[in-house]
Simulated scan of single mutants.
Amino acid sequence: MSHSNHYPSGLSLSAETARNLANATVTPPQWDDITPRWLHILLPWVDVDGGVYRVNRVKRKESGVAIELLTVDDGEPKLPTTFVDYENDPHEYHLSSIQTVLNTHTRVTDLYSNAVDQLREQVRLTVEAVKEREESELLNHPEFGLVNVVAESQTIKTRKGTPTPDDLDELIKLVWKKPAFFLAHPYAIAAFGREATRRGVPPPTVTLFGSPFITWRGIPLIPSNKLAIDENGKTSILLLRVGEKQRGIVGLQKAGVTGEIEPGLSVRYMGTNEHSIASHLVTRYFSVAKLGDDAIARLDDVSINNYHEYV
C-alpha cells in the first residue's frame, strides 16, 4: 500500500479530510464567503465570437448633431443632405479568462464518494470561487471594471458624505434613460436606508428572485460586497442601464467551449499523472462592455459610518 508521502503533498484533497466529509456528515461543504452575485444575474450576457466585442459609435459633430435635418412649415426650401458617420477607431473589448487547475487524488474520489461525490463538490466549490472572482473583476478590473470606466461627466460626489435621497436623485439625472438598478455595498445600502428613514421617506421594497430589495424611485438597490470600502469608511454607488438595445451595460462571454458546464464556464479533464492525481482545468471567459457613456454613473465619497439618535 502506498503512502501519501509518495506523491506531492498539498496538491489535492487529503484522504483524512475526505473521510470526514464522507463518514461524519451527509451535508455538502459550507462556504461562508459565497455571495448571491446579483450583478451576474441582472446583467444581460452577449456571446462573443472570436473573443472580441467591438463597440461602434456614431461620430459626433462639433454642434452635437450627427444628422442634418430641416423642419418645414411652408414653402419649398432646399433640403439638407446628410449621412451617418462612424468613429474610425471603435473600442474593442477582449475577453479575459479566470483559470485554475483542480487536482483530485483518484483514491480519494474512488473510496470516499459515498454520501457526497468528492469530485463534484471539489468542482462546485472551485466554480464558486471562480464566480466570486469574476464579480470582483466585473467591478474592479483596471481596464473594463464598471467602477473604473465611468466617464468623468458621469461622476459626482455626495453633498454631505452620507448617501441621501438627493444624492441618488442626482444619479438618476445622469442615467435617466431606463435606469435598471443601483449597485452598492450592503453597508452603503444600509446607510442610505438610515438617511431616507430619518427624512421620513423610508424606501419601499420589491421582491426579485425571491429576495427583498429596497428601492428608490422604483429602482432597486442591489448589494455587492465587491465594491470597496476604504480605510475612512468611504465607498461608491453605481447606477446602471443594461442591455444592447438600450445602449447600456452588457456582460460578455464565450459560449460553446469544450467541457462547458454553463455558458462561458468549462471544466476540462486534463488527465491523471503518475501520482494518481487527476487534473481538471476550470476556465471562465468573460468581460463587460459599456455601450454608452450615459449607461452608468458613479456616486463617490459615500460614508457608511453615520448613525442617528432617535428620541
Rank of each mutant, 00 (worst) to 15 (best):
L171W: 13
E244K: 04
K290D: 06
P220G: 14
E143G: 01
V149C: 03
T35I: 01
N305G: 15
T81L: 04
V130N: 00
A184E: 04
V150F: 07
Q154H: 02
S12Y: 13
N56V: 12
S2N: 07
T272S: 00
L95G: 00
D230W: 01
A297P: 12
A66R: 06
L69M: 13
A180R: 07
L102D: 08
K254D: 08
E68W: 09
N306L: 08
I304V: 15
V267D: 01
S97D: 10
R217Y: 11
P212I: 00
N232A: 01
R268Y: 09
G200C: 06
H94C: 02
N56Q: 11
V175P: 10
V250A: 11
A15R: 11
V267I: 08
W45N: 06
A184M: 02
M270D: 06
R284N: 15
L227G: 02
Y7G: 06
T106V: 15
W38N: 13
M270A: 12
D89L: 01
V55M: 11
E121Q: 14
T81R: 04
L70S: 12
R247P: 02
T197L: 04
I261N: 02
Q122P: 00
L291E: 08
A18K: 06
T106S: 13
T283W: 02
P165I: 08
V26G: 13
Y93Q: 05
S4I: 08
P36G: 09
H308T: 05
V288T: 03
R198V: 14
N20C: 08
I261E: 10
L281Q: 12
Q122F: 02
Y112T: 02
